[in-house]
């Protein structure tokens, strides 16, 4: 106790502040244990499973399969279809979400009257259970008791139509993800220094030029961060689409995670499903890497 009181944070002596110095280790241990046991452990186990032929049966033997799962995945037409749908979904939801949220954030950042209502509404989907969001939109899309057919005078079964199901689901994705994106972009807008606007106003720049030359460049780091996160969240989406369509009709909305869920828990191919998870991780990291690299280059 006295030793601690003399050199409270290892700062006074200045010699050792590393994590392995006397005061640090007992405190860092509780930090590392939850991370190791609850995060690193399961993930490493999951990644290892991708290289085995693990099945769901209780007494099945599991053996090392090398890259066989990956070879099988690459020649699996159903996987490629699911992958294509996942990319269409992931990219379009992320882009639409961003554009819609940017517009809303810009409006919320102004002195308009309905701002309070819009602000509250913009956050509500964040707090709702994804299952409830899915069920709610099923009510909206419902062919008989729904809202849309009555509104448009059509008779379409939106979520069971081969060409409309994916766009319909994408709209729900945008609605669901708008809150986080809007809140983050709004916070970014509010931290843009006022002087910058004043400077270009003196130059006689219009609203559009101000947005293009000041707001957007200032917002760039925030935009890159939130769109990257959105893309990761969207590509890994499961609950929303499972409740809306279960991946139907005919697999037209079967996102990669729905495909993986079916492989693992309907057909029992644990190893194969894990392989799919690893493959999606690689793709996500590649897309993000490319995106961040291009952004960093353009920022120079």
């Amino acid at each position: 106790m006295t030793a601690l009181a003399q050199r409270p944070y290892g700062r006074v002596g200045g010699a050792r502040r590393g994590p392995w110095s006397g005061a640090g280790l007992p405190l860092l241990l509780p930090a590392l244990v939850p991370v190791l046991v609850f995060s690193v452990g399961p993930l490493v186990y999951g990644i290892l499973l991708a290289f085995t032929d693990a099945r769901s049966g209780r007494n099945t033997e599991t053996s090392f399969a090398g890259l066989r799962n990956f070879a099988e995945l690459l020649s699996d037409g159903d996987f490629w279809e699911s992958f294509r749908i996942g990319m269409v979904w992931g990219l379009s939801v992320t882009v639409l979400q961003f554009l819609a949220s940017l517009g809303l954030a810009l409006l919320l950042n102004q002195d308009l009257r309905l701002r309070g209502v819009a602000r509250v509404l913009a956050v509500v989907p964040w707090a709702m259970p994804p299952v409830v969001i899915g069920l709610m939109w099923r009510l909206v899309y419902h062919p008989d008791a729904g809202l849309l057919n009555g509104l448009f005078g059509t008779h379409v079964d939106w979520l069971h139509d081969f060409s409309l199901a994916l766009p319909a689901v994408i709209v729900v994705g945008v609605w669901t993800g708008m809150p986080q994106t809007t809140v983050v972009l709004l916070a970014g807008l509010q931290s843009v220094p006022k002087e910058l606007y004043e400077a270009v106003s003196v130059d006689g720049a219009g609203a559009w030029r101000r947005f293009w030359n000041v707001t957007l460049p200032q917002l760039r780091p925030v935009i890159v961060a939130i769109t990257s996160l959105d893309f990761v969240w969207n590509i890994n989406q499961f609950s929303l689409v499972y409740v809306l369509t279960q991946g139907g009709p005919g697999g037209r909305t079967r996102l990669p995670m729905l495909f993986a869920y079916e492989e693992a828990f309907r057909y029992g191919f644990f190893g194969y499903a894990a392989t799919l998870g690893v493959a999606i991780t690689i793709v996500v990291l590649a897309v993000l890497g490319l995106y961040l690299w291009r952004q960093a280059r353009e920022a120079d």
Binding site: V35, P42, G46, A264, F270, L276, G277, I280, T281, V284
Partner: peptide, 21 residues
């Protein structure tokens, strides 16, 4: 860094081993 990186992995990679355990 790991905490951040772990967000990139899809949940299937976590749920299968947890289910087995």
């Amino acid at each position: 860094g790991w905490v951040l990186l772990s967000q990139v992995f899809p949940v299937v990679l976590v749920i299968i081993p947890l289910f087995m355990v």
